[in-house]
Amino acid sequence: MTRPFLSVENLVVHFPTPDGVVRATDGLSYTVEPGKTLGIVGESGSGKSVSSSAILGLHRNTSAQVSGRIWLNDIDLLTLSDKEMQARRGKDVAMIFQDPLSALHPYYTIGDQVAEAYRVHNKVSKKAARDRAIEMLDRVGIPNPQLRVDDYPHQFSGGMRQRAMIAMALINDPQLLIADEPTTALDVTVQAQILDLLQDLQREFNTALIMITHDLGVIAEVADDVLVMYAGRAVEYGTTKQLLTAPAMPYTLGLIQSVPDLSSDVNEPLRPIPGNPPSLLDPPSGCAFAPRCTFKHLVADNLPDTVMPELEEIAPGHLRRCHLTEHDLSKLTPKPAEEVEVV
């Protein structure tokens, strides 16, 4: 059997700190195929960014303890030397960061920075790299790229900077693109443009895309598959349709219900998830979501507090981590959120 294009297996990222080990990512597995988009959803501190930066080898030479396997085209990225990784970073795998203002260097022109990404991986003249940068800026929809190429980041608007970041990430035709909250810092109208652009480019270059976000609306628009992370672990994994229409893990359901849309009843109060996300320092040994779960009373004994549920397949391609025996949450009656005792 051939391995998927990108296959992350049992990825663990731990950060030792004076207060103990922070288990940022614990036993994470997923796959992505070319031309497809995997959405990773989670709240701050759920490990979604940490696990993705591990693919680029950004935890090398830090105190982080990384284990597991990251197969890209049948090569385990974690076994590569720094030099080998460097040759792939920005070429095979590229990343778009959340805040383009802090990801761009203020002292260099946009053109220099976009061209540098090209020159690092290709033996070309400055002139050729510059031409290629202009071509990419044009491709991502920056007007007058021949002139704007010599602008500095502060002369660009937020949306334009993010376009420049995308140009930089795609200049080497990467097979895998990781976008870490690429539109969170942007206005809705600009967000829509950037998402459309990413999808157009993905179709054109057949790139595999990992979209990290906390916005389920964004996920619904762009992702083929979704991975929901909570406290460093995958809690639900399946196609976008499976997850959004039949969420089988109370946290996913809670996320969907807590977000109002343009047609929800304004006289009804919103339905938040009670409590706060747990600390990853010394996390509970049982289900990490149990303290906030409105379905917990339906599970026998104190199972959720002591035993970590396994990821189980409940339908083809649909996995969840939950103690509940029923898969269809709409058949169950949750406790009202106010009655959940949150420590």
Partner: peptide
């Protein structure tokens, strides 16, 4: 109108 058209809609997208 442009603002409203840009809002990602979870339910419609599915």
């Amino acid at each position: 109108r442009s603002l409203l058209s840009a809002v990602p809609d979870m339910r419609q997208a599915v």
